[in-house]
Simulated scan of single mutants.
Amino acid sequence: MEPLTQQDFATLLEFRTRLRRFLAWSEQHARAAGVTPRQHQLLLAIKGHGGSCGPTIGELADYLMLRHHSTVELVDRAEEARLVARDRDAADARVIRVRLRPDGERILTALTRRHLIELGELAPVLDHLAALLEHLGDPDPQTDEPGRPAPAS
């Protein structure tokens, strides 16, 4: 494993700084579009969910890394704002699916266009990090986490 260089640390710092700026930028644009940052994430999780039917609350909780009850509250607020709707699953009426309503779809589409353009600004740093990862090779098998010895087998 090759030693890390000052440039490696500088690249990681640049990436983390740009990532934090992107997240702050994203939150600002969500609010300007009339939704909270969490509602924006919810809309994206619904639209990005694969399959022919919308995601369940449990799937949304997993995407958003939230507890089930927090996700229910988030969906409740988004439903009150007419961004999303709940529907019973066609195959199992006990299952509730969440789908976008036209206002949610419109807001998400506008935000996504802006986000994809902004993410293009991060591409050069991501490319550099990908090259850095290739040059670093495999992590040290003696550790699972930086600064921590691997557990004894």
Rank of each mutant, 00 (worst) to 15 (best):
L43C: 00
Q28E: 15
R31V: 09
Q6A: 14
I46D: 01
L4T: 11
G137V: 07
T11S: 14
G137E: 07
A30S: 08
V84L: 00
L132N: 03
L60Y: 04
L12P: 02
L43G: 00
V75T: 06
T109E: 13
H69F: 15
L122E: 09
G137A: 07
G54A: 04
Y63G: 02
D76L: 05
A24K: 10
C53T: 10
R67P: 02
H68N: 15
A131T: 15
I96Q: 05
L132W: 04
L12W: 06
L100M: 07
A33S: 12
T109R: 15
G50N: 11
L19I: 04
L19G: 03
E80W: 08
R31H: 05
H40Y: 08
H49Q: 12
G54M: 02
L13N: 10
L116F: 12
S70N: 13
P55E: 03
D76W: 03
V98M: 01
I46L: 04
A33D: 06
S153Y: 11
G34T: 05
R106I: 02
Q41R: 10
T56Q: 09
H135K: 14
Y63D: 07
V84F: 00
L64W: 04
T143D: 14
Q6P: 01
T11V: 07
G50W: 12
D127I: 08
